[in-house]
Write a protein that binds this DNA or RNA. Structure first.
Length: 376
RNA sequence: CAUCUAUCUAGCAUU
């Protein structure tokens, strides 16, 4: 059974759901880990509904079954479902609580993350690291530092987490000082420091650090692409791209965005059509690129042909119309989109403001509060 | 006593 379970998971991790399924069906004497494994295979393949169906028929669910399902919902941002499942499960353990801390944190619910942290019966190192990360992701580097200082033990993840708390929130010199003080460093430490320079617009610092790195991976290369692109140096960005041993989707996206944001629409398009795979970010990026160049019908076509649309997809097109002064089209989209968020309202408001309709902008701002949205 | 399954840190997208 253990051998079968291992194989089911291995195939799933390589994207071979069909093989996982076949092996699962042939598994003799299935245990709960077998069921959990195939359920997570479906999660991995993005088939959340089917995963849920499997969850429902698992004969003897254990805490891993429940936690896996909670985590699956959390990963795709279905925080209410995660929450509901978490509330109804029999015996959550420390992993389940940790999952919820991350879920809340990634959805901007720092208050809920902290509450969970405070209420959980026991904490482990991952709990503390998750809390550092929660503060990092929600703009609170000082709180991240407080947690870091208070935690009973630390590991390299804690260190890297605190460094990125500084780096992500504009405290570049603190990030670099901390990086310099670290006795152990791994590739993630180096990449985090590189990202700190890059997001600070310090191309020189980034380049020097990059040249000093003991090893590189696709993340470090991509960070350099972004660093060059951010300074308008798209040719050097392209050189970095060409020097990479292998390209993943994010590397392509970074190059595409670099071209797009520096006004090279046809280069961006060329990359777009040559990409071996695309994701939501790719489509949003090309939509925004079309919008910036007033190619609104192309932008609209992208939205219409997307396999899945999120609120962000709609926001991107709304912003496209709004920034080009086409407020009536923006308004139409605004009314028909399934689910607005703060970003949607922001796009509409700035569109009206830019078009010189200050009154409409203010009306919308007031209306937004009435609809229960908190301005950011 | 032990093998398989769930949780933490780095790069890309709208405003």
């Amino acid at each position: 059974v253990v051998a079968y379970n291992t194989m089911v998971v291995a195939y799933a991790q390589n994207g071979h759901l069909e093989s996982s399924k076949l092996l699962f069906d042939r598994t003799p004497q299935k245990n709960t880990a077998s069921w959990n494994g195939i359920m997570n295979a479906y999660v991995q393949a993005g088939k959340l509904d089917l995963a849920r169906k499997i969850f429902n028929i698992i004969p003897c669910k254990d805490v891993v079954s429940w936690s896996s399902m909670v985590s699956a919902y959390a990963q795709v941002g279905h925080i209410e479902e995660a929450d509901a499942l978490f509330a109804s499960m029999p015996n959550p353990n420390v992993v389940t609580y940790n999952t919820m801390i991350m879920a809340y944190s990634q959805n901007g619910r720092l208050d809920r993350a902290k509450k969970t942290f405070d209420e959980m019966p026991e904490r482990d190192l991952i709990t503390w690291n998750a809390m550092v990360s929660a503060y990092a992701q929600n703009g609170r580097p000082d709180n991240a530092k407080l947690v870091f200082d208070k935690m009973p033990q630390r590991n390299l993840v804690s260190m890297n987490g605190l460094m990125s708390a500084f780096g992500l929130n504009g405290e570049t010199s603190k990030a670099i000082d901390f990086f310099d003080s670290m006795e152990q460093k791994d590739l993630i430490s180096w990449s985090s420091a590189l990202a700190a320079y890059s997001q600070d617009g310090n191309l020189d610092g980034a380049r020097k650090l990059f040249d000093k790195m003991p090893e590189w991976n696709v993340v470090s290369f991509t960070t350099m692409i972004t660093a060059y692109s951010g300074k308008g140096r798209v040719e050097e960005a392209k050189l970095v791209f060409d020097s990479m041993p292998e390209h993943d989707l994010i590397a392509y996206n970074a190059l595409l965005v670099g071209y797009a944001q520096n006004g090279y629409l046809s280069d961006a398009e060329r990359i777009f059509f040559s990409m071996p795979a695309k994701n939501l970010e790719t489509l949003h990026a090309i939509m925004a690129a079309y919008a910036q160049h007033m190619h609104l019908s192309e932008a609209k076509t992208v939205l219409n042909t997307m396999p899945v649309r999120t609120t962000l997809s709609w926001n991107t097109l709304i912003a496209a119309y709004a920034l080009n002064g086409h407020m009536q089209e923006a308004r139409v989209l605004f009314e028909i989109l399934p689910k607005a968020d703060v970003g949607t309202w922001n796009s509409m408001i700035s569109g009206f403001a830019k078009a010189g309709h200050g009154k409409s902008a203010i009306d919308l701002f007031l209306e937004m509060a009435v609809e229960g949205f908190v301005p950011d």
